[in-house]
Design a protein around this nucleic acid. Sequence first.
DNA 1: TGGTTGTTGCCATCATCTTGCAACAGATCC
DNA 2: GGATCTGTTGCAAGATGATGGCAACAACCA
Lengths: 153, 153
Amino acid sequence: MITTEADRVDTALRRLRRAGMRNTVARRGILALLAHAAGDRGHLTATQLHEALLARGLAMEMSTVHRILRQLIDLGIAHTVPVAGAMTFGLADQPHHHAVCEGCGSLRQLPAAAVAASIDAARTAGIEVDPDGYPSGVVLYGRCAQCRMTTAD
Amino acid sequence: MITTEADRVDTALRRLRRAGMRNTVARRGILALLAHAAGDRGHLTATQLHEALLARGLAMEMSTVHRILRQLIDLGIAHTVPVAGAMTFGLADQPHHHAVCEGCGSLRQLPAAAVAASIDAARTAGIEVDPDGYPSGVVLYGRCAQCRMTTAD
DNA sequence: TGGTTGTTGCCATCATCTTGCAACAGATCC
DNA sequence: GGATCTGTTGCAAGATGATGGCAACAACCA
């Protein structure tokens, strides 16, 4: 992790600005949370984001959260990973892919090099996958150590 | 494709039977469609399955389709891949993973060997992924040739 | 500082999936 | 073949996640 959270938010805001979009409280809040989550446990669902925003005193509508997330994805600023029927969101400023625990939904980042062979195989099959993991890239669904312990089936 | 569709349905029904579950019209219908789809374009969503069942004269409730699909997944007979906010379902009798087009939702199957390196990387990161692709395995999200043509962005 | 225009809040709506319960039907035994 | 047991389905309601329209608001530029 070279850049700080503030730097990453700043960079994202500049990209928004260049696309003709405004620097608003709602967007700054969401970007700050995404940057924080990226350095922490991984990605967040729209609901988790909404709750975290409220906890920070940033009251806003759920529809606004969804709208902003969609915009961030359209611009390639954020990317999204489907987990257990819901979407989770993270910053896409550092190329990576994802391994998801289907038990608890926790998420690990995988470097691009680790999934290169799989991307080659997909290309052979006719699907071109972004090597930087945008908008979803490669997702591996499995179980983390803790969930393998608790559900011994 | 070594086994016929009928064989695959039969095998699945035997596994259901062994688990103490009954051989019903609804289950036969769903398994037949999944077996057919696997040899065709890939997987089906619950809605697509429901419509196809109605088209075959097998009237049943959407809730029944969902219930049966969940049972098939619990038994490892079917597996599921999230595509564009919905889940798609396919038979899991032949070990494979998936490459999905985010444009049109079409799906290609990848052999287990093609994604082995990625699964190793996930294990290193702490997530154990089933090499046979159950229940979701490895999913690569990208774009097929046709969608890359139509949306030139 | 005022005007323009993108953005947000609010509300309604849609789609997908889940759950509870009573009626039904497949499987087994006699 | 018929009775019985119990898993299964239909029906209806609802939880959850995501989207769209419109008026009020606020960020940006001149």
